[in-house]
């Protein structure tokens, strides 16, 4: 642990701003362990985020870090990656950041299959602004802007990313960190666009209002309401009702955007000689 802290964290920026019990720190820990596991060169790694509690994570990470505007992390990251393709680019984003205001950028980053790994901290709520509902707030849950219960339908962001063209899509929880580290590592290793949705808890403005108990209760909820995709194959529709699938949901290979562009550059430069 000490070694990880020294190598990858801006220790002078700690302690972090997150509430006690917030899952965001666990996600950050998993991201760093995954980076360590796949041995990325810290000098060649840029971490980009939008705005939200989750998007504050890069500030603690000893890499080139870019804390951008709400929803736009993937668009900024696209510029970084396209301009300097040798960089490893990660995006850390929230459910509001990536699925509401930044939804269009998510679709198009996936469609291009640009080599960026996005980790979506899904706490089902807008944490930073005090608990308004997000596109990933389940129907019926209470939020400051849904005092009578949310009537919106949440969408499955992983399915969306798969449909849009992402080549690695997975979902994990902060309850199962070992699995999460594995999923993020594979996402980073995928040469193309990867999305890892992480189910995490916001006890402060979501759990409490929805009477979900303590942080421990919320993490237990994650355990009890998720099913690994492999196990799900052997389960009936009834058994799977209301369950959230976790694990590697999709993996494929398709041409990567910046590589395709570099091929054009190389061809033109050869012809120009």
């Amino acid at each position: 642990m000490q070694e990880l802290l020294d190598k990858y964290f801006r220790k002078d920026k700690l302690p972090h701003i997150w509430c006690p019990g917030c899952g965001h720190g666990i996600v950050l820990g998993a991201v760093v362990r995954a980076i360590d596991k796949v041995n990325l060169d810290p000098d060649k790694t840029t971490v980009v985020s939008g705005i939200g509690c989750s998007s504050r994570a890069p500030g603690y990470m000893k890499f080139d870090t870019l804390h951008t505007t709400h929803g736009r992390a993937l668009a900024f990251a696209t510029g970084v990656k396209h301009a300097k393709p040798e960089l490893n680019v990660l995006v850390l984003t929230g459910d509001g950041d990536a699925a509401a205001i930044g939804g269009n950028h998510l679709i198009h980053a996936a469609r291009r299959n640009i080599d960026i790994t996005a980790v979506l901290f899904n706490n089902n709520i807008y944490g930073m602004t005090g608990g308004q509902y997000s596109p990933l707030t389940p129907t019926g849950k209470v939020a400051t802007t849904a005092p009578y219960g949310n009537i919106d339908q949440a969408f499955d962001i992983c399915n969306l990313a798969i449909a849009a063209g992402a080549t690695y899509v997975a979902r994990g929880t902060v309850y199962n960190v070992t699995q999460l580290i594995g999923l993020i590592s594979k996402g980073i290793q995928n040469k193309g666009f990867s999305l890892i949705e992480v189910i995490t808890q916001c006890p402060t403005v979501y759990g409490r209002r929805n009477k979900m108990g303590t942080t421990i209760d919320m993490m237990k909820w994650q355990k009890e309401n998720t099913v690994n995709v492999k196990a799900a194959k052997k389960m009936s529709k009834e058994q799977l009702k209301g369950k959230i699938l976790v694990g590697e949901l999709y993996s494929d290979t398709r041409p990567e955007y910046t590589e395709q562009y570099t091929k054009i550059v190389e061809r033109l430069q050869k012809e120009g000689q």
Partner: peptide, 9 residues
């Protein structure tokens, strides 16, 4: 956004 990201490289 992409332009700003690129400029930072």
């Amino acid at each position: 956004a992409a332009v700003i990201g690129a400029s930072l490289t």
